[in-house]
Amino acid sequence: MESRPAETIGSLEEANDRISWLGGYESESEVEAAARQIVEYFGLQSFVFGALFRNGEREDYRYLVGCEPEWCFLYNERKWYAIDPFIDYALRSTSPVLASDVPLHTAGQQRLMAEAAEHGFRSGIVVPAHSGSAIRIGILYLGTSDGPERARDSLRKHRSLMRAFALELLEWWDARLRADGLEVLDLDALDVDLLRKAQEHATAEEAARELGVTLSRVKARYERIERKLEVPNKRSAVEKAVALGLIRGARWPEARP
């Protein structure tokens, strides 16, 4: 990855470029540094991006942080993710919204907002990001220690760019987790191709002829994939691979059963 300039962003085109570069960064620190510049362009000071990955009953959160570290520590320690009203909002909605417009229902949520205001999120914006499947969802919190007018003004000016920003961050996590998953499970490119073929409901013979490997090798590979993913059959392997982000969700909802 070539190094990118770290100067302050001065124009809409530049902001657009910086957002489109996010996918090319390799480390979290690089993405966080670039994201800080973009948030400053929005006229705000803090951000947290949470990526929620659902795998069956299990939910997994990953974060990119551009705010006071104490706030993240407090948030995790008090398990506020369990009552966070913005997660609930992002699960149900796609529109960016002012944090003050999200209704608070419990005393716990009011305490959470009061603490957030003390740590750079006096007012803010919530930007949901949804992927092709319901398995991966992103929530971008943009915050400022100024009053709600600053956040309102920023949202009015940069609404579309904020959506793009959140989606690029979600894609970055998605790609990162896919690569990590392949490495950890010791799967290679042929395994991923075979999982995609299984997702298309290809028989082993069809997969062999389209990927250029012998039938016996395809069968042996499917057995190995099932063993590594700890599933009983190809169907379950595909479902687990989608859940782990190794392959994307099916584009053929009505494919041959």
Partner: peptide, 15 residues
Amino acid sequence: GNAWAVERARLRRTR
């Protein structure tokens, strides 16, 4: 013929 058969099967499968 082989290429046609491979592609026909793939297209039928993926609609």
